[in-house]
Design a protein around this nucleic acid. Structure first.
Length: 337
DNA sequence: ATGATTTGACCGCC
DNA sequence: GGCGGTCAAATCAT
């Protein structure tokens, strides 16, 4: 709690100091931050209620851990929203960024490189970025490609030394228009049969943009007993392995198939950002062979079936299996990534 | 014309 | 210095 209080004060300090001078184009992020902080307040109250019942803490440890995880997620979302400004003047340091200040050697290195290259000062230097360290990550390994419901845009592909297949890099499509900092990496493993390791970095701060993923778990006959997962509800079924990142509901389709047209969801019209070429198109657009979606070795690895999940965080780690059975957080959607 | 993908270059971290 | 993550110009697709 002390840590939470410190982090809360830190966040509010930056928030208060910055808000009075924010330009108009930051208003949406400011509102987003306020929403996150409000949710964080509610969660903190809930946590306090839990802590006031010591006997419940032990018996319902999952709930406590879950609330703590969500509170931390709120802080991260808030900081992401506040940091999403493209104007460095308003950039706010985050508590999760533990990089030490630039050393003299680093500065010298950068200066020396700039002395060689001609870089326009008004334009950010190519490749100049701050690598996010210690940000929350969530890794899952799936046997097939997945559709996680978010709009991803591929920004890189690289051969990894220890891997036979190239790693693909995706960022949220709304990185620039909404400042969503979520990224993911998809790595095809060397296993036989190959699996797909997807690592999510950061939290989505884009709101109401989740496309409702429609997932068919592997079935020998696509017309027979296809299992759909609808991420558009807050319902979790006991047997779902769909993963922690989504609010899931598994439904069995009729024997006659045609699953994607059967599903209903609460998706709003804001999902029109999905295009036919988007890596995470709805299942109805997905070829029967997921691999055929790839334009190169591994391009569109967003289909998902049952998988193994693990998550890490700079401040909190938890097991998926534990979380799946305890979705008791009131009005707040269940979310790990 | 617009937006997504590809791919070589660049930079931070170990 | 090498590896991995990101950038951004070129290219492709719609």
């Amino acid at each position: 709690m002390v840590l939470l209080a410190i982090r809360s004060n830190t966040t509010n300090k930056y928030f208060m100091e910055s808000s009075s001078t924010w330009p108009d184009n930051l208003l949406s992020n400011r509102i987003k931050a306020i929403q996150e902080l409000t949710q964080g307040k509610h969660l903190t109250i809930k946590l306090r209620e839990l802590l006031e019942q010591p006997e419940k803490i032990e018996s319902d440890r999952k709930s406590v851990d879950g609330v703590v995880a969500q509170i931390l997620g709120m802080f991260e979302n808030t900081l992401s929203a506040l940091n999403s400004s493209s104007n460095e003047t308003f950039r706010i340091p985050t508590t999760v960024d533990t990089r030490s200040p630039r050393s003299s050697d680093d500065q010298k290195s950068e200066d020396s490189s700039e002395s060689v290259k001609t870089i326009t000062p008004l334009k950010t230097k190519r490749g100049c970025y701050k690598r996010r360290r210690n940000a929350s990550t969530c890794t899952k390994v799936t046997s097939t490609l997945i559709d996680d419901g978010y709009a991803w845009r591929k920004y890189g592909q690289k051969a990894i030394l220890a891997a036979k297949h190239q790693r693909n890099y995706f960022r949220c499509t709304h990185r620039f228009d909404q400042g969503c900092q979520a990224t993911k990496q998809v790595q095809k493993t060397d296993d036989e049969p190959p699996k797909y390791k997807t690592t999510y970095n950061g939290h989505h701060t884009c709101k109401k943009l989740q496309k409702v993923p429609q997932i068919i778990l592997d079935s020998p006959n696509p017309r027979d007993n296809s299992i759909l997962i609808n991420f558009g509800t807050n319902t979790l079924t006991e047997n779902t392995q769909a993963g922690p990142c989504f609010n899931s509901m598994i439904t069995q389709t009729p024997k006659n198939g045609l699953p994607s047209k059967v599903l209903k969801h609460d998706q709003d019209s804001s999902c029109d950002h999905y295009t036919a070429r988007d890596p995470i198109v709805g299942l109805s657009q997905v070829p029967s062979d997921p691999m055929s979606m790839m334009s190169s070795e591994l391009d569109h690895e967003d289909m998902m079936s049952s998988g193994v999940f693990s998550s890490t965080s700079s401040t909190n780690g938890y097991e998926i299996d534990d979380m799946l059975g305890s979705n008791d957080f009131g009005d707040f959607p269940f979310e790990l990534c």
